[in-house]
Each structure stands twice: as structure tokens, then as C-alpha cells.
Computed example of a mutant assay.
Amino acid sequence: MFVQVIQGQVTDAEQAHAAMDRWMEELAPEASGWLGTTAGVTADGQFIALARFESADAARRNSESPGQDKWWHEFTSLLSGDATFHDTEDVVTDIQGDPDSAGFVQVMQGAGSDPEHARDVMGRHRDEWATFRPEILGSEVAMYDDGDYTMAMFFTTEAAAREGEQKEVPAELQADMDEMNSLAAGPPAFFDLKQPWLYSPR
């Protein structure tokens, strides 16, 4: 899988949402290899999207299409500055339910000192985590630039996510969390998408 992370400050969240809906209607049917997009705008106007493709080649073909170029030019008129991009084929997914039904998505960005070790820790105790936090429908981690990452967590609702955060973590799972924290190069940044825009091929 290939993921492109796109970020920027938008001037109008509703217009940005309408533009994404228009992409889905007009361009998605021709986007060969596109697997889906998770996007949204935070309360302070930060737009973030994770676009998934079968491969880097599929993403490149899409970006080179005239329709995509025109759409992106129009979308950038809604940004107050330049957009930033992170492209990667180093992607880890953990699907426990239907992420497209999520009512709340939390995106985290940070950096780690040992991506391979982090990948190993993320692969542990998946069944136990699913039982402990049933409101988590899945996660998607895009890793790039020797340790940087963007992680999207899909929740049934924000209320359920906040309630789950308050639960006492079993010792086995707490050990996983402590190990992950030991690999972090500083605290992550959080982007709460309270009304996520979730797109998949029809």
C-alpha cells in the first residue's frame, strides 16, 4: 500500500469538504488503484488527509491526470499557505471493524527513534487491544523520513474514545504503551477530526 499525507490550513472547512465530495463524484471513478481517503479539518482549520493507493505508481498516474491537476489547483485556492506532503509505502494497518463508519478520527504525528522496533510492538496483542478498546475500529500508520509518522485512529464516537482513554490499562498492554513511549522522540501532535470525511471506492 502507498499513502500520501496532505496537510494545510484551510480558509473555509465547508468549501474544502465540498471540494473533496466533488473529487469523489467526478474523479474517483477514474482513479485506478485508489483505495480510499481519510480526511477532515480540525477546530482551528488544519486540513489533513491520508490518501491510500495500491502503489506509488497508481498514485503517480492519478496525480498526473489533467482532471486531478485542475481539481488540485482549485483546492489550493482554499488554503492560506502551501500544502505539505509525505509519501510512503511503509504503512501498517490494523482493522478491527469498519473504519468508514467512524464518527471520530484522531490523527497523531510524531517521530520515533527505531521504526522497526515500533512496528514490532504495534503487532503485539492485537486481539487483547481489540477486546480492551472495542470502540477502536482500526488504525493506519504511515511511516517516512527515518522515523517520522502519521497515525490515524478510527473510533465509533468521540465520547466512546474519551471514555476508553480513562480506562485502567491491563499490565500487559501498559508494557506495550511504555515501550512505544520509550521510542518516541518527543510528544506527538494531535489532530482531532470530529466530523471525519471518509471516502472509499464505490
Results as ranks from 00 to 15, higher is better:
residue 157 T to A: 04
residue 17 H to Y: 11
residue 112 G to C: 15
residue 27 L to F: 08
residue 186 G to C: 00
residue 40 G to H: 00
residue 162 R to P: 00
residue 36 G to K: 04
residue 105 V to L: 08
residue 76 T to E: 11
residue 93 T to C: 14
residue 111 A to Q: 15
residue 190 F to R: 13
residue 139 S to L: 05
residue 195 Q to P: 00
residue 30 E to C: 04
residue 147 G to T: 02
residue 141 V to P: 00
residue 136 I to V: 09
residue 54 E to N: 05
residue 23 W to G: 00
residue 69 D to Q: 11
residue 188 P to N: 02
residue 76 T to K: 04
residue 2 F to M: 14
residue 8 G to D: 08
residue 198 L to N: 05
residue 173 L to Y: 14
residue 83 A to E: 14
residue 177 M to V: 10
residue 115 P to T: 14
residue 132 F to V: 09
residue 183 L to S: 04
residue 13 A to D: 13
residue 166 Q to W: 04
residue 92 V to E: 15
residue 11 T to H: 04
residue 91 V to H: 09
residue 103 G to T: 10
residue 95 I to S: 10
residue 67 G to E: 08
residue 189 A to Y: 02
residue 26 E to Q: 13
residue 73 H to L: 08
residue 70 K to I: 09
residue 135 E to I: 06
residue 47 F to A: 07
residue 89 E to F: 12
residue 83 A to D: 08
residue 166 Q to R: 13
residue 29 P to N: 03
residue 30 E to L: 02
residue 137 L to T: 06
residue 67 G to H: 06
residue 137 L to A: 01
residue 133 R to H: 05
residue 63 S to T: 12
residue 132 F to G: 03
residue 116 E to A: 15
residue 46 Q to L: 02
residue 69 D to N: 02
residue 126 R to C: 05
residue 159 A to I: 01
residue 96 Q to V: 13
residue 189 A to I: 00
residue 12 D to R: 06
residue 29 P to C: 12
residue 78 L to I: 11
residue 7 Q to C: 02
residue 82 D to N: 08
residue 130 A to I: 13
residue 177 M to Q: 06
residue 188 P to W: 00
residue 114 D to E: 09
residue 29 P to Q: 12
residue 156 T to I: 09
residue 118 A to R: 09
residue 123 G to Y: 04
residue 69 D to A: 14
residue 55 S to D: 01
residue 52 R to Q: 14
residue 119 R to T: 10
residue 20 M to K: 05
residue 46 Q to Y: 07
residue 73 H to W: 05
residue 180 M to A: 08
residue 18 A to D: 05
residue 21 D to I: 15
residue 202 R to E: 10
residue 125 H to I: 03
residue 126 R to F: 01
residue 107 V to R: 03
residue 152 A to K: 02
residue 173 L to W: 10
residue 154 F to P: 03
residue 178 D to R: 01
residue 34 W to F: 10
residue 32 S to V: 14
residue 20 M to R: 13
residue 133 R to D: 12
residue 118 A to M: 11
residue 181 N to T: 06
residue 60 R to A: 08
residue 96 Q to A: 15
residue 80 S to V: 13
residue 191 F to I: 08
residue 81 G to I: 09
residue 124 R to L: 02
residue 195 Q to D: 15
residue 191 F to Q: 07
residue 201 P to V: 12
residue 84 T to M: 03
residue 172 E to S: 08
residue 109 Q to P: 08
residue 35 L to V: 07
residue 128 E to L: 05
residue 191 F to T: 04
residue 50 L to N: 05
residue 81 G to L: 01
